[in-house]
Amino acid sequence: MELALLGRTLMKLGEAAIPTEGLGAYGTSEQSVVIVAADIKAHPGTPVKDIAARTGFPQSKVSACIARLKEAGAVETDTDPADRRRTLIRPAEAVSARVAEVRAADIDHILTAAMQDPDRLDEVKAALCVLAAHLDPGALARIAN
């Protein structure tokens, strides 16, 4: 239970750190977009149906997330040469301005505001780097097998 609560807290902090200035309202949560983006990164060149199966999201939600990611320049799509009815999604070759902005977002203010002891910010950031190194987006696929 503690792992689930920590995961939820980290997800919410991550969402809060994503810059949203100048963006319109969307029907998909930042969390679902991040999950779909991580799946696409782990499985480039994949169809919507497979992303839906791996994430557990309905195809309509996956399609909405992909539309947001495409608008941000984070992903690109191609027609599947084996089945022209399917679209394959992959991470964008070039980093768009929006993706660069999100990657450059400062998390210090979000973490500091959330921490009981803000003087330990560097320690918490180091711990997050260790977690990120050992629990990459492919971690969920590894435990599912």
Rank of each mutant, 00 (worst) to 15 (best):
Q31N: 07
L111Q: 01
A100T: 01
E101S: 06
V102T: 07
V95N: 01
V62K: 01
V95T: 13
E71T: 06
S60W: 02
R86D: 06
D50V: 11
D78E: 15
C65Q: 05
A37R: 11
E101A: 10
I40T: 05
T9R: 15
M11R: 06
K61N: 09
K12C: 09
T79H: 04
D119G: 15
P118M: 07
A100C: 02
Q31A: 15
Q116V: 02
I107F: 01
T46R: 15
P81S: 01
K41C: 10
K41V: 07
A64F: 02
C65Y: 02
T87D: 03
P47K: 02
P81T: 02
L121P: 09
T46P: 01
E21V: 11
P81V: 04
A74H: 00
E30H: 12
D50K: 11
G73C: 11
I107D: 01
K70H: 10
G22M: 08
R103F: 08
D80T: 09
L69C: 08
V75R: 12
L13G: 10
H43A: 10
S29E: 12
E71Q: 12
H109K: 07
Q31L: 11
L23V: 07
R120I: 00
A114H: 01
L13E: 08
L10K: 04
I40H: 04
D117N: 15
D108S: 10
A38W: 03
S29V: 09
I107E: 04
T112R: 13
A105P: 00
A64C: 02
S63W: 01
G24Q: 04
S96Q: 02
D122A: 15
P91Q: 15
R8S: 15
G7N: 09
P19G: 09
A25M: 13
P58H: 15
P19S: 07
A104I: 03
Y26D: 14
V102Q: 06
K12H: 14
A104W: 01
I35G: 01
L121H: 08
F57C: 00
D122C: 03
L69D: 08
K70I: 00
A92P: 00
A104M: 03
R68Y: 08
A16P: 05
G27C: 14
T87P: 04
V99Y: 05
A97E: 14
Q116P: 00
V34L: 12
D78Y: 11
S29C: 07
H43W: 06
T112L: 04
I110F: 07
D106Y: 00
A82N: 09
D83F: 02
A53Q: 05
R68Q: 11
I35Y: 08
R68S: 07
L6Y: 06
L10D: 06
D39L: 14
T28A: 07
K41S: 11
E30T: 12
S63I: 07
E30I: 12
R90S: 15
A25V: 14
K41P: 00
A17T: 09
D122H: 08
P58Q: 13
R84F: 08
T79R: 13
T9G: 05
A17F: 13
A74V: 06
L10S: 05
D39Q: 14
P44N: 00
D39G: 05
L13H: 11
L88S: 02
G14C: 04
I107M: 05
A113S: 12
D39T: 14
P47A: 05
I35E: 14
V33M: 06
A82H: 03
R8T: 15
D78R: 14
D108F: 00
L111D: 00
T9M: 12
K49Y: 00
Q31R: 15
L23K: 13
